[in-house]
């Protein structure tokens, strides 16, 4: 049981409060997606959870222990975080970059053991980049590169993995690939995953637990089917939308209404899915 929990957390930048007194518990062994409009504080919250951003108030606990009271290296063995848009140093190769995920597990001299090699290999394999091991990261495509960074976080072997907009800059196929990969990780290893996503419908499909934020607070959270309603979308995004069942997954599908397209089909006319 490893519970990452925010208790009355306040976060901000240079006196500008972004989040005030927020409570959140990441459900253990589940996939949590955090969605919300730009500048609602979702990335800041995730950075706070990973101890990348200092708290102005409240605390973040891991199994009841304040994470600021833990040595950073110990935290890094239990909580992994992929920040937004990481840039690999010039010339670094895939295997070497992924190996850096072993840092928190290594001692003073940092020799790579055969255990480290095995973990790195598994990480390369499960993200499908094993055959790229000797390639410079800079030469890879966006989708491949993102997989490599995720492999590095996997090599960190943490029970909890946080990802800040991991699908940004990826085309729709690679977005699905990546979310499938994270689902696999969650199912096979029981890893708790929490990510900030922009794409509402993918978030609704892949998350067990959906957190909708707006203006620094949580508007609604829970199972996507319960949370993602017309009212919530309207409140969080200021957006008129219809919510229909996703024909593939049965999860809520948000269909936004703009200014120029009136709704041809009323929501009631859409058959609810069987499940």
């Amino acid at each position: 049981m490893t519970n990452l929990r925010a208790e009355g957390v306040s976060l901000g930048y240079d006196g500008l409060r972004v989040i005030e007194g927020l409570d959140l518990t990441l459900p253990d062994g589940k996939i949590t997606a955090v969605v919300g409009p730009n500048a609602c504080g979702k990335s800041t919250l995730l950075r706070g959870l990973a101890r990348l951003h200092p708290l102005d108030g409240g605390r973040i606990t891991l199994d009841g222990t304040d994470i600021t009271a833990m040595p950073r290296k110990e935290l890094a063995r239990r909580v992994g975080m992929l920040p937004q848009s990481s840039i690999a140093p010039d010339g670094v190769r895939v295997a070497e970059l992924v190996s850096r995920g072993r840092y928190p597990h290594q001692g003073w001299f940092g020799r790579h053991s055969s255990d480290d090699d095995a973990v790195v290999t598994t990480a390369l394999r499960s993200t499908g980049v094993a055959e790229l091991a000797d390639r410079p990261v800079a030469e890879l495509s966006g989708g491949q590169r993102q997989r490599v960074w995720i492999a590095m976080v996997l090599a960190q072997q943490t029970d909890i993995v946080l990802l800040d907009e991991p699908t940004t800059f990826l085309d729709v196929r690679h977005q699905l690939d990546l979310l499938d990969l994270l689902t696999e990780l969650n199912r096979d290893r029981g890893t708790t995953v929490a990510m900030v996503l922009h794409e509402l419908n993918l978030a609704a499909r892949y998350a067990d637990h959906l957190v909708v934020m707006s203006a620094g607070r949580i508007v609604a959270e829970g199972a996507p089917a319960d949370v993602l309603t017309r009212e919530v979308v309207s409140e969080a995004f200021g957006l008129r939308a219809q919510v229909v069942p996703d024909p593939v997954a049965g999860s809520p599908l948000v269909v936004p209404v703009g200014r120029f397209h009136s709704s041809a089909v009323e929501p009631s006319a859409v058959e609810p899915s069987a499940s």
Binding site: A50, L52, K73, L82, P83, S86, P89, L97, Y103, P104
Partner: peptide, 16 residues
């Protein structure tokens, strides 16, 4: 090594 990946990644890997 971790520092060359940027501040956020270095912190995530446990470097002060």
């Amino acid at each position: 090594g971790p520092l060359s990946l940027g501040d956020d990644n270095a912190r995530s890997l446990g470097v002060g």
